[in-house]
Design a protein around this nucleic acid. Structure first.
Lengths: 232, 232
DNA sequence: CGTACTTTTGAATCGCATCAAATCTGGTGG
DNA sequence: CCACCAGATTTGATGCGATTCAAAAGTACG
């Protein structure tokens, strides 16, 4: 906010490096899209290491790179007037801010939630690859479509008026068979649900007391009548 | 909900027709993507007329067509347990449920909010066109990216805790220069903001009384101090 | 062991949802 | 033209649930 716009943090702090050829199979296994990268794009990729809390880019920065997370978690966040922080995306093993490919500048900040390994691809090379490699182009559309569905589900969840409703909706849409294992502290989950952490703690407590929910460490399971009306 | 799954309403009520060749230039002017449709896809398109309230498809229906709205408005909605209705998308001059192209069935209902004219394209032909026509493929990605950005903005808005905050956010992100003209009744707008219509009416009233907002029919304009902290 | 963070509980408050009802609006048909 | 209707708009009263502020207890890490 103060002074001149600063470059992305990793330009200052880390020397980007050529990704190890040996790592590609591992990455591609976790992220099928990476298996479809044309050689030219692969060659243009850079590997970055981010420390927890480190900033990948700021809102307003020019979009020069497209990033994908191969280890750890990067969050796309916006800061409201008043200091509140909204999490728009949590990227784990996937691309960050896919839509920025079409944009001149970023509209959000991207911050490493934990120690991360990230691949960065120059936008012009990425665009060129979409133009030439059909399979890659189709896979990229799949990526965008998935993000659209995820965001629609989140909007639907945020429209629910009660905390318990949002918790159930999250477990039903993000989990499997009425259970979900959280990959983040509850405080962060509360922000994703559009709740204060106090409200979330109290809600989880109440749902357990009422026998609606079973909590085992980071795994939450819906029990009893609530499952009956689960999505078909 | 009752009985056998019903086909999309227009299969029952209307005979789809070949779109008039003379209409394409008009449609393409409003929707640049339509100018890029390959001839084969154009030929496969059907023109539909929907009455207000008519259903284009239901959640659970098999995805056989991709639809774009050339006149009127189609809403993508989901119904919560308890009868509450959440609007996921309002399509005016654009595609409905873009992400359904990748899906076997629809996840939401699509309902005409007013009298509509809709073009329907068979999914297989649409997919084939994406594979062969590069410019069309790129334009479709732009469409998906726009939807991602719109949805992120909506999530951000729904995370705001106060009604006034959501109203201001809407005007700033959907309007121009601190003003927006609504294309829907306020009751529907309230649902889009995740509020009851009563809360919205009261909030608008209070904001006018406090001099934060000027309302002229369907045009809302932010006045005074609130504009000072508007987005750069 | 101390620091920083999350987790947890408590009390008070505020804002929105809810229920209820009156008014206004645009359209239909007599 | 007016009666009438369905819908949106508007106002009121009430209660609930989440926020807010505060603080204690637990936990990870150096």
């Amino acid at each position: 906010m103060l002074g001149a716009p600063e470059p992305a943090a990793y330009d200052r702090d880390h020397m980007p490096s050529r990704p190890e050829a040996a790592d590609w199979p591992r990455w591609a296994a976790a992220q099928p899209l990476l298996a479809l990268l044309p050689p030219a794009l692969r060659a243009a990729g850079q590997s970055l290491t981010l420390a927890p809390g480190e900033v990948l880019f700021h809102a307003g920065d020019a979009v020069k790179k497209i990033h994908t997370v191969v280890r750890g978690e990067v969050r796309l966040v916006r800061h409201e007037a008043g200091g509140a922080e909204v999490v728009l995306q949590r990227a784990r093993g996937g691309f960050v801010a896919e839509a920025s490919l079409e944009s001149r500048t970023y509209h959000c900040d991207a911050v490493a939630a934990e120690a991360c390994e990230v691949l960065a691809f120059p936008v012009p090379v990425f665009r060129a690859a979409l133009e030439t490699e059909l399979a890659f182009c189709r896979a990229w559309q799949g990526e965008l479509s998935r993000e659209v569905r995820r965001l629609r589900a989140q909007c639907e969840r945020l429209c629910l008026k009660t905390a318990a409703g949002r918790v159930l909706h999250y477990i039903e849409s993000e989990g499997r068979h009425g259970a979900v294992t959280l990959s983040q502290p509850r405080k962060a989950w509360a922000a994703e649900l559009g709740l204060t952490h106090e409200a979330l703690y109290r809600t989880l407590r109440r749902m357990q007391d009422e026998g609606l929910l079973r909590v085992d460490a980071d795994t939450l399971r819906i029990v009893g009548p609530a499952r009956a009306r689960g999505r078909g």
